[in-house]
Simulated assay, not measured.
Amino acid sequence: MTERPKPSRQPAGAREPLVFIVEDEESVRRALSNLFQSVGLEVEVFGSAPEMLQSKLPDVASCLVLDVRLPGLSGLDFQAELGKANIHIPIIFMTGHGDIPMTVRAMKGGAVDFLTKPFRDQDMLDAVTVAIERDRKRRDAERVVAGLRALFETLTPRERDILALVASGLMNKQVAGELGLAEITVKIYRGQIMKKMGARSLADLVRMAETLGIRRAKP
């Protein structure tokens, strides 16, 4: 498998939520497209997993409605391929031949729902609503982390060392002893760090460090 979907550079929020449909039966693709468009959702359809693998995914809240049984790469195998490519689009599986092991595998892989054909339109719409909201929250969280990471990159190496120690729960005096600095110097550094990171309080700064995974064990 050489081709994988690539995120586009389009800003998040520039488009309405998007539903991808991967289904080999044209009549089902058309029915699902009409259903989603009737509630104001944008839709992109594919007849097979390779078709989607060769496309670029716009940077908007989205989900994937995926048939389990497809020609070539199956829906479950496609789910695994997306995971390997670090693409975390929420998936709603649909099948006319579901079984418990298949359902368990899909849900363990992170699927939002597993609908057996024929399913009610409302059940599909409910599943899509949940999936898109999950994707929107994930994207919001990733934007927060990206913003914090950009602020962290403005810190000097010394400021990063001090931030790691402060986030580990050390007092100014302890940080000074660990780094061989005067306590007043540590206080000045900490003030600079809080200003650069936009932290309103020490607790706020510690939460930022934890979000970024910045932590150093106490000596």
Results as ranks from 00 to 15, higher is better:
A199N: 05
S62A: 05
A209Y: 02
Q54N: 08
G177F: 10
D135V: 01
A61W: 07
R149S: 07
L57P: 04
A209S: 11
R138V: 03
E178M: 07
T116R: 12
E81D: 04
A167W: 11
L202G: 15
A14D: 01
I89H: 00
Q192V: 13
L35Y: 04
A203F: 03
G40C: 02
E159A: 12
S201N: 03
F20Q: 02
R30K: 09
L70C: 06
E23M: 12
A182V: 14
Q79I: 08
Q54P: 03
M171Q: 14
G169W: 04
T116D: 00
V112S: 04
G198A: 12
E25C: 15
R105D: 14
I193F: 05
K117G: 06
I162D: 13
A111D: 00
M197H: 12
D77E: 11
A12E: 04
G198C: 11
L165D: 14
L202A: 07
V60N: 13
L205K: 13
L64V: 10
S27K: 12
P17L: 02
P118V: 08
D59Y: 15
L66Y: 06
S8N: 02
Q79P: 06
R136Y: 11
L53W: 03
A182W: 15
G180T: 10
L165H: 15
E26D: 11
P11V: 03
Q54V: 15
R158Y: 07
M124F: 02
I91R: 00
G147F: 09
V104S: 08
N172M: 15
V39P: 02
L82D: 01
G40L: 12
S8W: 06
P157L: 13
D135L: 00
A199I: 01
M197S: 00
D24E: 13
F36N: 00
I214G: 01
K173G: 10
S38F: 05
D123I: 00
K108P: 00
P90C: 12
A209I: 10
R139A: 08
L170Y: 08
L18G: 08
G72H: 09
G109K: 10
A217Q: 14
L151T: 08
G96H: 10
M124V: 04
S55V: 12
F152G: 04
S62Y: 04
G109Q: 00
A199L: 07
D113C: 02
R120H: 02
L125H: 11
A146D: 06
M107T: 07
A164L: 06
T185K: 09
P118R: 13
L76G: 03
A217E: 03
R105Q: 00
